[in-house]
């Protein structure tokens, strides 16, 4: 088990270098550099420009810049933001809880609805209920996040006025962050209405971000369940005189969860990509908004470091999911 983890972690290093390389090149292919973007229309004297470039190391050959960057990374240093001068890691850690809160809520929403939907569709295979659920799943799956987000905002926030349009909590409330999770912090603050406000702010973004995972989980659960409901051991469970609920929801679902958990794990990467868009739509102060701003400002260290850190999290979650897979599947557990 430990060997497995160590192996997986070692395999991550080349992946990291590749990601660092790709972001490094990609951001430099975008026209304009940090200084030009900042000075904008006003322009800047060539001497000043050269001086700034020198300070940031941008006058070095690109290969040298890259190697320097790797060297820096090897020492655990993700650099400093060009625009705020704060360490990239610090900014990341400050903003990440917001994204994590959104992502967890979205996944909870997707899992809590997706698994029962898949189970119901599988047990009602070929019926109206099955077609309705799977039709909805297909629609959800093909829904462009941006469009879906705006649609929901228009309907629930603008037309009905049920939910706020943006942010994590009403500006009325102020309290020091404790955990960085607004739901928890607002609860701890004891301020009346703060928790409710946080929940209302979270609902729409979580639904928007959770829709595609919801559709994927529902479809995966259905197909896994359909396969497993035909297994001999499900017949054995029924032959024991167990209730249908116990047979389907326990004996069959327990096995169906194995592939479903893998799918949930694979969703994490896509979830991060979706989070960027969702945060942008809802002005959610998380990693996504931070990264988009860093592109606009050509803040090379933030973009590079931010993407590396996000990738690191995705990889970490994938390792955790693999471990969970082992816990769920006795055959794998013993093989390792």
């Amino acid at each position: 088990m430990l060997g497995f983890v160590v192996r997986r972690v070692l395999l991550v290093i080349p992946t990291f270098i590749a990601i660092a390389f790709l972001t490094f090149i990609a951001i430099r292919l975008v026209p304009g550099d940090p200084i030009e973007v900042r000075t904008g229309e006003r322009g800047i004297s060539p001497e000043r420009l050269a001086q700034f470039r020198h300070e940031l190391g941008l006058d070095q050959p690109v290969w040298k810049q890259f190697l320097d960057y790797l060297w820096q990374l090897a020492h655990g240093n993700f650099g400093t933001s060009i625009s705020t001068h704060a360490p990239v890691l610090t900014e990341f850690l400050t903003l990440f809880p917001a994204t994590l809160e959104l992502a967890i809520s979205a996944m909870l929403f997707a899992t809590i609805l997706g698994i029962p939907a898949g189970v119901i569709a599988a047990t009602r295979r070929g019926t109206f209920i099955d077609y309705t659920l799977m039709g909805a799943a297909l629609t959800g799956f093909s829904m462009p996040i941006f469009w879906w987000g705006l649609l929901l905002v228009l309907f629930f926030s603008v037309n009905l006025g049920w939910t706020p349009v943006s942010g994590r909590i009403d500006l009325l409330y102020y309290f020091e962050p404790v955990t960085g999770f607004m739901l928890i912090d607002s609860w701890l603050s004891g301020e009346e209405g703060a928790f409710r406000s946080a929940v209302m702010h979270l609902i729409l973004p979580a639904i928007v971000l959770g829709t595609i995972p919801l559709a994927t989980i529902a479809r995966m659960t259905r197909s896994a369940m359909l396969e497993i409901l035909g297994e001999d051991y499900v017949r054995t469970a029924r032959a024991k005189g167990l209730s249908p609920f116990r047979v389907v929801g326990f004996h069959a679902l327990r096995n169906a969860l194995i592939p479903v958990v893998t799918v949930i794990g694979l969703q994490v990467g896509a979830l991060m990509a979706g989070a960027v868009l969702t945060e942008y739509i809802f002005s959610w102060p998380g990693i996504g908004t931070w990264l988009i701003e860093s592109i606009n400002r050509r803040d090379y260290p933030v973009l590079q470091g931010g993407i590396l850190l996000v990738s690191g999290i995705v990889i970490l979650i994938n390792i955790l999911v693999d471990l969970l897979y082992g816990v769920l599947n006795p055959r794998i557990r013993h093989a390792r």
Binding site: D232, Y233, T236, A239, R254
Partner: peptide, 18 residues
């Protein structure tokens, strides 16, 4: 499963692997 029980042909796949 109580008064009337059944045993199947494929023992390996008749037990729940989980």
């Amino acid at each position: 499963g109580k008064d009337m029980a059944m045993i199947f042909q494929e023992p390996m796949s008749s037990l729940n692997p989980c």
